[in-house]
């Protein structure tokens, strides 16, 4: 469990990225922080592994205040996946995946053997182990990034817009992969995105943020769709238009679901 307790972050240039932020992130679930740029979502994420330190307030992991933990040690037990993978270009895929275990003192041979298994886990062929990151496609690099994030078997996995730079088809694949991994491994995943569809797809808990880290609404996707807290949330999730406004039409005795424009999207099962 991760807790934010009235966390404020003001950067040296005066911008207040996050103000008096409170949130509880439940264990073994996926929590998605979603909002437009400038809402402080990445700042919040990076405060969890102390890449950024809060100006005031506390962040607790399983009841332990992170301010009391050494940043480097903390980061090694939290997985981190970022946009553009952030792999080390001069190291082979296998060594990139093994980075954190090796930093933690696991013998290289052992770390590599485990890294090979992780390639299987994230759906990469083992033949890619000896390639360099730049010889891989963007989607493959992201998978390596995920494998690296999982290598030290962390309880928490932070994902900072990890699929922002890959094409829609690959993104859909990677999203399904993320759901599968989260369910299979039971990690606490904190995921940052600006894409509400991605948020609803992946999140058990979705946190909709406004400027300055102000929480517009927290809830399951269904809760948010059913009862948008205000007009901002309603328009942000698109509850008032297009494909989210569905109604039923009777066609040949069956209940056909159609969207705002009357385009059919499916059939209700009795």
């Amino acid at each position: 469990m991760i807790e934010f307790r009235s966390v404020t972050k003001q950067f040296p240039d005066g911008t207040v990225a996050v103000k008096e932020f409170d949130l509880v992130i439940p264990p073994r679930k996926t929590t998605v922080l979603v909002g437009s740029s400038g809402c402080g979502k990445t700042t919040l994420l990076r405060m969890i592994n102390r890449m950024i330190d809060p100006t005031s307030g506390h962040i607790l992991i399983d009841g332990e205040d992170t301010a009391a933990l050494a940043p480097v040690k903390l980061r090694r037990r939290i997985g981190y996946v970022m946009q553009n993978s952030g792999l080390l270009p001069h190291r082979k895929v296998i060594d990139n995946v093994a980075t954190v275990p090796v930093l933690n003192g696991v013998p290289k041979k052992e770390a590599r053997a485990h890294a090979l298994e992780l390639l299987d886990t994230v759906g990469l062929d083992r033949s890619l182990a000896d390639k360099y990151p730049r010889q891989l496609s963007g989607g493959q690099q992201q998978r390596v990034g995920v494998a690296r994030g999982l290598a030290a078997d962390p309880n928490i996995l932070l994902m900072d817009e990890p699929f922002g730079a890959v094409d829609p088809i690959v993104r859909a694949e990677l999203q399904q992969e993320t759901i599968r991994l989260q369910q299979g491994l039971g990690k606490t995943v904190v995921f940052v995105t600006h894409d509400i569809d991605e948020a609803f797809l992946l999140g058990h808990q979705v946190v909709i943020l406004q400027k300055g880290g102000h929480i517009a609404q927290v809830g399951t996707p269904a809760e948010i769709l059913a009862n948008p807290a205000d007009d901002f949330v309603a328009s942000f999730v698109g509850a008032d238009k297009g494909k989210r406004v569905l109604r039923i039409e009777k066609v040949g005795g069956r209940d056909v679901v159609v969207d705002e424009n009357g385009t059919p999207t499916g059939v209700l099962q009795p």
């Binding site: 990076r46 890449m51 090694r76 952030g86 792999l87 080390l88 930093l103």
Partner: peptide, 15 residues
Amino acid sequence: VDRKTIDAARAVGMT
């Protein structure tokens, strides 16, 4: 060196 690479190295826990 790409700033993102260094950022990532720091994020995975390199001193």
